[in-house]
Amino acid sequence: MYLAADKTKPEGAQLEDAHCGDDVDLAAPTTAPGGKWQTFPNSHISHHGAACCDIAHQWLIAFDYAQLNGGDVLTGPRWMREQSAWGPTAWPIHWCEAVGAKTVDCGVHAAIAHEAFVARGVRAFRAQFIQRYSADATASWRQNWGKESVSDHWIDGEAIYHEGNAILIGDDEVKLWDGSAGWWINPRGDAGYGSLAAVRIEAPDIDGFADGLLWGERRIMLNQWVAM
């Protein structure tokens, strides 16, 4: 996920969208449902404004459609996890880097999946998650991210910040896609390792969804963190 604090990108990299996340306050109170990520924005892939990123973006859209194999457009883009394993990503990242990368983080997976869903004609939203894991798991991830000199701001104790997608499957019902795992998050999930502690669905236009969106038996208000 893209953070202004992330300084791992080589000097001189050009950014067209250089403001996303600039004003993130990582010192936000952790008692809010979003914890220290209460005001954290969704990751955003940058565009070089050149053919390299145009080609990558066009390829993504056409390739995703090809991979549907005639299946339902509501099928999760499972191929992305095969194309790019989940791991550290240095931000900012551009389309020409993100689409062909062998390893990307959840922010890239979610941003790419969002483009694919929208191109299929599916109404899709970006989604942010806070998940519970264990001290061992987060220590392991901290180590892996550290080896790549990439910020581990997405880890806080035994909780992690994660990104995915929400897609509309009915009038006001959504499924939550975790592109880094290649699965739909279980709405019946409760507590424990890997469970969802909070979710935020971002919808710039909430027309028609003033009462939020239904996920399983829960109703999730838009543009705010909702504790699970």
């Binding site: 145009d54 859209i61 056409a62 549907l68 005639g70």
Partner: peptide, 17 residues
């Protein structure tokens, strides 16, 4: 027929790029 639809999308991209 899915491949055909898919091919049309590839063609659109090829034209554009």
């Amino acid at each position: 027929w899915h491949l055909f639809e898919s091919m049309l999308r590839w063609c659109q991209s090829i034209e554009k790029l």
